[in-house]
Design a protein around this nucleic acid. Structure first.
Length: 467
RNA sequence: GGUCGGGUGGCCGAGAGGCGAGGCAAGGGACUGCAAAUCCCUCUACACGGGUUCAAAUCCCGUCCCGACCUCCA
């Protein structure tokens, strides 16, 4: 099998992936700030990194996957005040929504999912190191800032120069205790009524960036293999994580991966633009497995332009594949094995080139369907197995127990018996060329959501998917 | 202003010096009582203008257009 090559935002090049420790991969992904319901952009990010994780595991690595939850920040406090609910209740409510959304699209739970508020001690320790070595300062008002000009390398990920940055506008420079307007808050002093935790520099709460440095260090150590997140996190969030962590003497992330947006009319989906499509709403249109297929089918670094018709077409394409697999299982009398083909592996090893991988699935699908027509068991088995192997990596294996649903096999068997009675009636009508009667039976079943197809092996029924 | 992406056929979407990924749609055909499903065949491209090269969608220069980030963001 060829070796895995991955893009690195820091070098803007695809290069051979070599883990720090042979056979082990450590990943930190910036997860949700739980201040609103998840939209499909959030879920796309999670799917991209879940696919990476699955591929690493399939490639034989032992993967430690950390994805955090930011459960305290300005917006959470703001929204909690608006809704007159405790901030922690609001955060937990949305955290559960994110968990449910991840689950619906078969994103595996991370190895550990740390919350910011559970790691205050680690953050205070990190701030102490930074203050002791002169990288950070506490001006006495309860805030703690990182002094960016003391950092040896700053803005290496986004390729900017510190003097090119537009000066902060949201900061009241006249009253700010910052030494430089580009310095950023590690810790924010508590305003009256706000939650706070005690520190040697005053009571307050974490700045956004500090938590990730502290939690990555807590679970993955001073250096780890991959740090991921959305494109918009490159600056400031990831630059600031690097600044803090490197100033503390940590090696930090060896490679940076960033996923692109889901867009609408070319524009990024975001709550502030009011164009976000909530996962819960989309799931009324297509099944979770279909949403995953749609969101996971684009290359992770390419924008994915959302449209209803693209989603529908994608779902239909997926059902073709699914239908072939189910038919294969019927023909073979067992669920096909899961095999990763060389061509799919080569695609995945090339910076997770999922679209190239989909081309190999198309080829398998064509040959497999041919196999069904020709009753060529070997061809069916080979192609069904290779499709299943690919779908497993993409998190879209219809035989995955995650998607098996609640269909009870005894109910299915009973239904099969009932439908076969109807099909027997239809067969005898067809025998006496009473096509009006036979079509009435087929149409009647169709009205109930059951499709009948006549195959070389006789009629076959299936339940129609929604939409 | 700085930094970073992008513009490919009717649509979606890869590729990154040579032999036109793939899918959807469309047209034709096979199979079928009809349908559905499936298979086979066919068609249509690289924003624009220069340049480099035996050869450019791909490299270089310029232009136009779209988007992202610059302290809320997946």
């Amino acid at each position: 099998m060829s070796a895995l090559n991955l893009y690195d935002t820091a070098t803007r090049q695809v290069g051979k992936f070599t883990p720090i420790k042979s056979g082990e991969v450590s990943i930190y992904v910036c997860g949700a700030t739980v201040q609103a319901s998840p939209h499909i952009g959030h879920i796309r990010s999670a799917i991209n990194f879940d696919t990476l994780r699955r591929w690493l595991i399939k490639s034989g690595y032992n993967v430690t996957f950390i994805r955090n939850v930011t459960d305290i920040d300005d917006k959470i406090l703001q929204k909690a005040a608006q809704e007159k609910t405790p901030w922690w209740a609001l955060a937990m409510k949305y955290e559960r929504e994110f968990t449910a959304a991840f689950d619906a699209v078969n994103v595996r739970p991370p190895t550990y999912e740390p919350r910011a508020t559970g790691h205050i001690t680690a953050m205070v320790e990190l701030m102490q190191i930074l203050i002791d070595n002169g990288s950070a300062y506490a001006p006495g008002n309860g805030d703690v800032y990182l002094e960016v000009r003391t950092v040896k390398r700053y803005l290496t990920l986004s390729g900017q120069r510190i003097d090119d940055l537009l000066p902060a506008t949201d900061d009241d420079l006249a009253t700010s205790k910052k030494r430089d307007p580009r310095d950023f808050a590690l810790w924010k002093s508590a305003k009256p009524g706000e939650p706070s935790w005690p520190t040697p520099w005053g009571a307050g709460r974490p700045g956004w960036h500090l938590e990730c440095s502290a939690m990555a260090h807590a679970y993955l150590g001073e250096s780890f293999d991959i740090h991921g997140g959305g494109l918009d996190l490159i600056f400031p969030h990831h630059e600031n994580e690097i600044a803090q962590s490197e100033a503390a003497g940590y090696g930090f992330a060896k490679r940076w991966l960033h996923n692109a947006w889901v867009t609408q009319s070319g524009e990024k989906m975001s709550k502030s633009l009011g164009n976000s499509l909530l996962v819960a709403v989309i799931l009324q249109r297509v099944r979770g497995i279909e949403l995953r297929w749609y969101l996971g089918s684009a290359h992770y670094r390419s924008m994915l332009e959302y449209s209803e018709s693209a989603l529908d077409e994608s779902a239909i394409a997926f059902r073709r594949i699914e239908s072939f697999l189910k038919r294969s299982a019927e023909t073979l009398g067992k669920i096909p094995d899961s095999v990763v083909s060389d061509s799919f592996a080569a695609a995945m090893n090339d910076d997770l080139a999922v679209p190239a991988g989909l081309a190999t699935i198309s080829e398998n699908l064509r040959l497999g369907n041919q196999g069904i027509t020709d009753a060529d068991t070997a061809a069916i088995s080979k192609n069904a197995s290779e499709i299943r192997g690919a779908l497993e990596i993409l998190g879209c294996d219809p035989f995955d127990s995650h998607f098996a649903g609640s269909a009870r096999s005894d109910l299915t068997a009973a239904m099969d018996g009932v439908i076969k009675l109807a099909l027997a009636e239809r067969a005898s009508a067809r025998d006496r060329k009473d096509f009006a009667a036979s079509d009435a039976i087929r149409d009647g079943l169709l009205a109930l959501g059951i499709t009948i197809e006549d195959t070389a092996q006789g009629p076959r029924w299936s339940i129609m998917e929604k939409s």
